[in-house]
């Protein structure tokens, strides 16, 4: 999953908040899944660490993220509709299917037959 900032998208902290929030509510980020540190995400996005910290704090205030000393920042157990195992399995399936040139309908057919 890639987080990207655009100059026209509003404040960087708001964009980070909205993108992570969207990934959590759509199940692409699972319960308990660990997010990168403030420092790593800030370096990757070329923004100030305070910007990422602000986004993380607002996500915590919304109940979507939880930060614990020693275990970093994770998706809250109450926030995501799926577990991190299911979210990771879905990502692996999507990557493998794209690599083989399958369409979404093909993948859904495989999923239904495996259910």
């Amino acid at each position: 999953m890639i987080l990207a900032l655009s100059p026209e998208g509003g404040s960087p902290a708001r964009q980070i908040h909205d993108q992570i929030s969207g990934l959590i509510t759509t199940g692409r980020l699972g319960r308990g899944e660990r997010l990168p540190s403030v420092r790593q995400l800030a370096a990757d996005l070329a923004v100030a660490p305070g910007t990422v910290a602000k986004a993380y704090h607002s996500l915590e205030a919304d109940g979507l993220l939880v930060t614990r000393v020693g275990s970093g920042t994770r998706v809250s157990d109450d926030a995501a509709p799926v577990s991190s195992a299911v979210a990771q399995a879905a990502r692996h399936l999507a990557t493998a299917a794209r690599d083989e040139g399958l369409s979404l309908e093909d993948v859904l057919r495989v999923l239904r037959s495996s259910w």
Partner: peptide, 10 residues
Amino acid sequence: PSAGATLAPR
């Protein structure tokens, strides 16, 4: 060039 930030901790 980087397309953005990945959400996996490194």
